[in-house]
Design a protein around this nucleic acid. Sequence first.
DNA 1: GTCTATAATAGGATAGAC
DNA 2: GTCTATCCTATTATAGAC
Lengths: 186, 186
Amino acid sequence: MPAAKSSKDEAIDAITDVFREFGFDGASLSRLSEASGLGRSSLYHYFPNGKDDMAQAAVERVSERASELVIGPLRAPGDPAMRVKAAAGGIAKFYEGGRANCLVNLFAFGEAGEAAPGAAKDMAAGLEDAFCAVARDAGFSPKEARLKAEHAIVEIEGALVVSRAQGSVAPFQRALARLPGVLTDR
Amino acid sequence: MPAAKSSKDEAIDAITDVFREFGFDGASLSRLSEASGLGRSSLYHYFPNGKDDMAQAAVERVSERASELVIGPLRAPGDPAMRVKAAAGGIAKFYEGGRANCLVNLFAFGEAGEAAPGAAKDMAAGLEDAFCAVARDAGFSPKEARLKAEHAIVEIEGALVVSRAQGSVAPFQRALARLPGVLTDR
DNA sequence: GTCTATAATAGGATAGAC
DNA sequence: GTCTATCCTATTATAGAC
């Protein structure tokens, strides 16, 4: 069985939510402290470099979830289109049905240093690689598969932006429904 | 001939660039002052409500450009696919080839009040309406055309996010090349 | 590890002279 | 319209006691 979550572990969950909701600049220490239930001093005890460390921990947490929910299903054996459908379900969970934001987008702005945005970019690259592999399994050339994978990421990121702007998850859901076609249709 | 640009008019251009590069929170008065060449007091003379007024002026400026560069070509007479191609050229200019960001995305985060994000959303809605009209001209039902227009906006917003994250405009350029297909192909 | 207190800075915004 | 000076607040971050 999994070990009981440590205090730091639970704090990272709360911290991650704050970054995803408010972005790097908007995630003030006050908000991070309140959400995590840790005082300022405790936060600096766990994260000596302050916000930058917290942002990095958030990206790591989010990357783990992406591996479980999205990359795992994509790498499973079976029909490529079915794997994409399974992954779409994972993506929906990962982004809370379209209500959560993507750290790749959020950390591209603001005073975040180098580490967190870089790690977020790496996560996106890993996702794209997994999409690429599934497109290759569907019979596409490496070049074609790479473009299809990029297209899939574009759809997801764009749908999140549009859904947030419109205050409705419908565009995100529709984009997810398009994903199998984007990745496996000729 | 157009009248000479006023001091305020030129300032709005500079201010718009700052918001597009740094987002609302990142656009500090120091940056806005330096970029516009106006002291703090002058900024508050032109924009009594401070940053919120400046952000609104930026959205207005950007909306005008979107009308000229994108909505105009979309509404021109002629073959729908050709109109979309012309609009794609305008979109490339509007987003500086993929290097500039979208205020709809940027103003969805941070301390921006209600007015500027709302105006940005209205601009996006106007763009979507124009896309929708061109899809209808291409023979699609109102419902189909609406979905295609949404899809086009999703592609553009997503491509901007991906291009920014990767530090390359290639994904944006490829998304633009897909636009005619998205809007006019069965 | 957590507390209280506090530093040090930057932020947005205003007042009044010119 | 622009300048200088200033205020208030919030921010990140640290120090030292417990």
